[in-house]
Design a protein around this nucleic acid. Structure first.
Length: 286
DNA sequence: GTAGTGCGATAACTATACGG
DNA sequence: CCGTATAGTTATCGCACTAC
C-alpha cells in the first residue's frame, strides 16, 4: 500500500499512521469486492477522530495533537454499527445497484427511470478539503496537486472551489436574472476588498454548473421519470440565496416540471439573521 | 460539552501594468 | 525590454455564536 502526501506527518502521528496502514493492508487484501468496499468506508469514518484534525465546517487541527488512538477498536465499533444499519435496511427484493464514478455534468447511465440525489449546497463546505485525510489514506490522491485536480471537478459549492478555468459556469449562471441579482447583491458586500474569497462568483459558478447537471439528467431520464433533489438554502454576508427556487427555475429551462418543494427542516444562518430551509425538489421530465 | 452554522485574516504564488 | 510594483488567484486555518 502506497500512502503518501507531504503533510501526512502533520495530519496524523506516526504511531496512528502505522495502525491505519496495517488496517488498510488487511482490508485491501479481502477478495470479495463488496466486503472490501464496505470495510473501507468503515475505516474511513474513524480516520479524523484518530488524527490531529478536528471535524468542523472548515476542518482544522486539534489544539492537542493525538499521539495515539485505538484505531482497530474504533474501526470495529464503526463496522459493527454499519452492519447493524445494513441489516435493518436490507431488502432482498431490491435491484442490484450499479456504482459509476464520474462527473454529474456529463456522465451517467444511458437510461434512467428515477434520479434521487443530494448535490452540494452553495454553503461554503469544501468536501475535498474536508476529506483530504481519507482521500489520501485510501490512496485516491498522493499530493496537493492531485487534490487540486479533484477540486476542479467539483460543483463550486464553496468559495475555495472557484477556478478561473471553470469560468464558463459563471457566464452560464449569470444568464439567469435571479442568479445575476444575487451575484450583484453579494458583490456589493465585497466592495473595497482587494483580496480573498468571492462568494458572488461562487454562487454564479454553482448555478451554471448545476444547470449543466440538469441538462445531463434531462437527456438520460425517461419522459415522465422523476427527480428527487435534496437542497438547502444559504446566505452570504446577509444576502439570502434561495437555492431551491433558483434550481427549480433552472430545471424548468432544462425541460422539467416542478411537482413539489417538500420542506423537511430549517437550518440556522450562523449570524442568526434568518432561517434557511432545506427541502426535496420533486421534478418530472416532461 | 459537542455539533452545527460561515466569516475573516493571512500569505505564497502568479499575472499584468508601468516607468525608465 | 527589463525590473519592480500592484493586482489577482489559491491555500490554510482560527474565530464567534447558538441549539441541544
Amino acid at each position: 500500500m502506497d500512502v503518501q502526501h507531504p503533510k501526512l506527518a502533520k495530519w496524523m502521528s506516526p504511531v496512528v499512521m502505522e495502525r491505519e496502514r496495517r488496517l488498510l493492508i488487511a482490508i485491501n487484501a479481502i477478495p470479495c469486492q463488496k466486503v472490501r468496499r464496505f470495510l473501507r468506508v468503515a475505516a474511513a469514518s474513524q480516520m479524523i477522530s484518530a488524527s490531529n484534525m478536528k471535524f468542523r465546517p472548515n476542518i482544522c487541527y486539534s489544539k492537542q495533537p493525538v499521539a495515539d488512538a485505538p484505531v482497530l477498536a474504533m474501526f470495529l465499533v464503526r463496522a459493527a454499527e454499519m452492519i447493524e444499519d445494513y441489516q435493518a435496511a436490507r431488502n432482498p427484493q431490491a435491484p442490484t445497484p450499479l456504482i459509476l464514478r464520474g462527473d454529474a455534468r456529463c456522465d451517467g447511465p444511458d437510461h434512467a427511470d428515477v434520479i434521487f440525489t443530494s448535490p452540494p449546497y452553495p454553503n461554503d463546505m469544501e468536501y475535498v478539503h474536508q476529506t483530504r485525510l481519507e482521500l489520501t489514506l485510501l490512496s485516491y490522491v498522493q499530493n496537493a496537486g492531485e487534490l487540486t485536480d479533484l477540486k476542479k471537478q467539483m460543483i463550486s459549492s464553496s468559495v475555495k472551489l472557484v477556478y478561473k478555468q471553470n469560468d464558463w459556469q459563471k457566464h452560464m449562471g449569470l444568464k439567469l436574472d435571479s442568479v445575476r441579482r444575487i451575484y450583484e447583491e453579494i458583490a456589493e458586500t465585497l466592495e473595497g476588498r482587494g483580496w480573498g474569497w468571492n462568494a458572488a462568483d461562487m454562487v454564479a459558478h454553482y448555478f451554471g454548473g448545476m444547470q449543466t447537471v440538469f441538462e445531463n439528467w434531462a437527456s438520460r431520464l425517461r419522459v415522465g421519470g422523476r427527480v428527487g433533489c435534496v437542497i438547502g438554502n444559504s446566505a452570504f454576508n446577509g444576502v439570502k440565496v434561495p437555492t431551491d427556487e433558483i434550481l427549480c427555475e433552472l430545471a424548468v429551462l432544462s425541460g422539467f416540471a416542478v411537482k413539489e418543494i417538500d420542506v423537511f427542516r430549517s437550518r440556522r444562518h450562523n449570524k442568526h439573521t434568518c432561517d434557511l430551509r432545506e427541502s426535496v425538489l420533486v421534478l418530472e421530465n416532461v
